[in-house]
Amino acid sequence: MRALLVVNPAATTTSARTRDVLIHALASEMKLEAVTTEYRGHARDLARRAAESDGMDLVVALGGDGTVNEVVNGLLHSGPDPEALPRLAVVPGGSTNVFARALGLPNDAVEATGAILDALSHRSERTVGLGLASGTPGTEDEAAPPRWFTFCAGFGFDAGVVGRVEQQRERGRTSTHALYIRQAARQFFGDPHRRRGAITLERPGEDPVKDLVLSIVCNASPWTYLGNRPVYASPRASFDTALDVFALSRLSAPALARYATQMLTSTPERGPHGKHAVSLHDLTDFTLHSKAPLPFQMDGDHLGLRTSVTFTGVRRALRVIV
């Protein structure tokens, strides 16, 4: 078996020594080429070359959700073809590792490597669905390149939080759950659209859903984690279906407290709910429009401001080792 290991040297929860151990463990079971990323987008470029080469069986991403997202976009550069493309394996090395954990992998890199090797020996894999976001024809964002996401995208409030966290990380702050909570509070008080939302959701054959403040698109459940606590925005979201949407039409201080509490106490059976909450399940095609440019994020990566994003849920897009 030929495999490419894409290593993010800045992965927050793995040391150089740990990465060396993992490389040796994988190399003992396969013909392994290990490459360390050197710039933003490098993981995508490496995965694209692997997808276009002959005889590459597996691409392993060692890093956080951002590294995984780049690898997935490289593998699917020419579109989904699960039987022809190399399979994907994920060794979690980030602070949250939502995609790996949603697949049922251990959150520890060494344990996850053992689980992957065991799955390879038993030929255990699954084909997962993914989300695709692209520019909307006829809008100022129509030229935005299509991009795949593995577990979530956000348009509005939560993307603003992600953007604030990225700014703090660029200033040398460590990405922690406390940092996210502080930036969420600052985003709340600084958001001019929190009382009357600027977002409209449109889907074929249905009336539009207007005046949304927050919109979270989920491809998996949980939506995220706070430490070891899973948080479910859309409990029915699954790698086996299309996309789910959780949205809010109001974000006053009492509403924020209520829905934040519901998020923290959410379960696989029950997510946040109420008269200002909108929950939609298994959507294949829809668009989110905004009256004003709003922050946009995918898999925890802030992508700037958009006024419109079109989403497609693609079932059976990629084979993953589990």
Rank of each mutant, 00 (worst) to 15 (best):
residue 262 Q to I: 02
residue 262 Q to L: 08
residue 262 Q to W: 02
residue 262 Q to P: 07
residue 262 Q to M: 11
residue 262 Q to N: 05
residue 263 M to W: 02
residue 263 M to T: 00
residue 263 M to N: 01
residue 263 M to C: 13
residue 263 M to Y: 11
residue 263 M to H: 07
residue 263 M to G: 07
residue 263 M to Q: 04
residue 264 L to C: 02
residue 264 L to H: 00
residue 264 L to S: 00
residue 265 T to N: 10
residue 265 T to Y: 09
residue 265 T to P: 01
residue 265 T to G: 02
residue 266 S to Q: 04
residue 266 S to F: 00
residue 266 S to R: 04
residue 266 S to V: 01
residue 266 S to N: 06
residue 266 S to K: 03
residue 267 T to Q: 11
residue 267 T to C: 09
residue 267 T to P: 11
residue 267 T to Y: 08
residue 267 T to N: 09
residue 267 T to E: 09
residue 268 P to C: 05
residue 268 P to R: 07
residue 269 E to Q: 15
residue 269 E to P: 01
residue 269 E to L: 14
residue 269 E to N: 09
residue 269 E to H: 13
residue 269 E to D: 15
residue 269 E to K: 14
residue 270 R to P: 01
residue 270 R to K: 15
residue 270 R to T: 13
residue 271 G to W: 11
residue 271 G to H: 10
residue 271 G to T: 10
residue 271 G to C: 10
residue 271 G to N: 12
residue 271 G to L: 12
residue 272 P to M: 12
residue 272 P to W: 08
residue 272 P to D: 13
residue 272 P to T: 12
residue 272 P to C: 12
residue 272 P to Q: 12
residue 273 H to I: 00
residue 273 H to E: 15
residue 273 H to N: 10
residue 274 G to D: 10
residue 274 G to S: 10
residue 274 G to E: 09
residue 274 G to P: 00
residue 274 G to V: 07
residue 275 K to G: 04
residue 275 K to Y: 09
residue 275 K to S: 14
residue 275 K to T: 10
residue 275 K to L: 05
residue 275 K to M: 03
residue 275 K to I: 01
residue 275 K to P: 14
residue 276 H to C: 03
residue 276 H to N: 14
residue 276 H to E: 15
residue 276 H to T: 11
residue 276 H to M: 07
residue 277 A to K: 05
residue 277 A to I: 02
residue 277 A to D: 03
residue 278 V to P: 00
residue 278 V to E: 04
residue 278 V to Q: 05
residue 278 V to G: 02
residue 278 V to Y: 02
residue 278 V to W: 03
residue 279 S to L: 14
residue 279 S to P: 00
residue 279 S to H: 11
residue 279 S to K: 05
residue 280 L to I: 09
residue 280 L to P: 07
residue 280 L to Y: 02
residue 281 H to K: 10
residue 281 H to F: 12
residue 281 H to W: 11
residue 281 H to A: 12
residue 281 H to T: 12
residue 281 H to N: 06
residue 282 D to I: 02
residue 282 D to W: 04
residue 282 D to Y: 05
residue 282 D to T: 01
residue 283 L to N: 06
residue 283 L to C: 11
residue 283 L to P: 05
residue 284 T to C: 04
residue 284 T to A: 14
residue 284 T to I: 04
residue 284 T to Q: 14
residue 284 T to K: 13
residue 284 T to D: 09
residue 285 D to L: 07
residue 285 D to P: 00
residue 286 F to Q: 05
residue 286 F to T: 03
residue 286 F to E: 05
residue 286 F to M: 07
residue 286 F to L: 06
residue 287 T to R: 09
residue 287 T to N: 03
residue 287 T to H: 02
residue 288 L to Y: 04
residue 288 L to H: 04
residue 288 L to G: 06
residue 288 L to N: 07
residue 288 L to M: 14
residue 289 H to D: 05
residue 289 H to A: 00
residue 289 H to I: 00
residue 290 S to I: 01
residue 290 S to N: 06
residue 290 S to C: 12
residue 290 S to M: 01
residue 290 S to H: 05
residue 290 S to Q: 08
residue 290 S to Y: 04
residue 290 S to L: 03
residue 291 K to R: 15
residue 291 K to Q: 15
residue 291 K to H: 15
residue 291 K to A: 14
residue 291 K to D: 15
